[in-house]
Design a protein around this nucleic acid. Structure first.
Ligand SMILES: [Mn+2]
Ligand SMILES: [Mn+2]
Ligand SMILES: [Zn+2]
Ligand SMILES: [Zn+2]
Lengths: 146, 146
DNA sequence: TCGGTAATGAAAATCAATTTCATTTACTTT
DNA sequence: AAAGTAAATGAAATTGATTTTCATTACCGA
């Protein structure tokens, strides 16, 4: 199998896109922050450390392109800015998020667990599911134990 | 049991809030558009028809207050503006949304169907769920039949 | 190498949402 | 009912993330 980066380059080229230094730099930052959910501005800040001449608009365009080709997924924490994280290459749907209402921690949940719901909306409403976005609010383990 | 509006007035007063003409007007618009998901700007436009002197900031403040006390819930269609709709008074969690990727229709789903998932994240991660927000993307019945 | 297209960066523009602040309104206490 | 107090409002200014514009540069195939 091809290396991960080769795969990405292929995906890009298939869509008529190029794998530029800027895109590589943005990908590196997001990839090296798999556990985080960086805002576009934060990604911009990180990328500039290695690639100071990059423009903010390029970062915006890049994360949107990456999302279009399924490389990253976004979440909104309702603070007015988009956040991006690597998508799960083998999963067909986005992963879920648990958000602690006390400490604000964001926890990833890879298990889908919506198969029954998907079936239900298909049978009941004739709706064919292609993706879903689930955010769960509550209290994390840490905050539960004070 | 008290009338719906009386209940609302009580809920507001319990929190130290007042039931003003402006809040009543905003509530009316949202209530009369239960099937829709109006953006704040759209709510503002509707309210102005009956109450032309209302200010945009008041509408923003009002929908946020209504959401805080559980009267309405918001959804984001990723078009950059918040949309608001009456919440389900008897349900403890927000209802779900199906969004057709072809025609853009937004379909409400009242059934929760996340009990198993809630249990799972509690057992597996120690996370106590208080609410959740689920958006499902796909093809609606109409668009499936061409 | 040449020509065409994609991509970039800097700056300006957009636009939903928020803040400020002077004024009004509603509720409580005399 | 009048006064006192805090909440609420509206108009305007501001914020801040995102988008657009446009001139320039990088890349790719012929
Ligand atoms: Mn995540
Ligand atoms: Mn809805
Ligand atoms: Zn926590
Ligand atoms: Zn449709």
């Amino acid at each position: 199998m091809a290396s991960k980066e080769t795969e990405i380059i292929n995906t890009l080229q298939t869509g008529g896109y190029r794998f530029t230094k800027q895109r590589q730099a943005v990908l590196e930052v997001i990839s090296q922050n798999r556990e985080n959910h960086l805002s576009t501005g934060e990604i911009f800040g990180e990328v500039k450390k290695k690639y100071p001449q990059i423009g903010l608009a390029t970062v915006y365009r890049t994360v949107q392109l990456f999302e279009k080709i399924g490389l990253v997924q976004h979440i909104s924490l309702d603070d007015g800015r988009m956040r991006y994280q690597m998508a799960d290459p083998e999963e067909k749907h986005e992963h879920h998020h648990l958000i602690c209402e006390i400490c604000g921690e964001v926890i990833d949940v890879q298990e889908d667990m919506l198969e029954h719901l998907e079936q239900h909306v298909f049978l009941k409403k004739g709706f064919t599911v292609t993706n879903h976005r689930l955010t769960v609010f509550g209290i994390c383990k840490n905050c539960s134990n004070h």
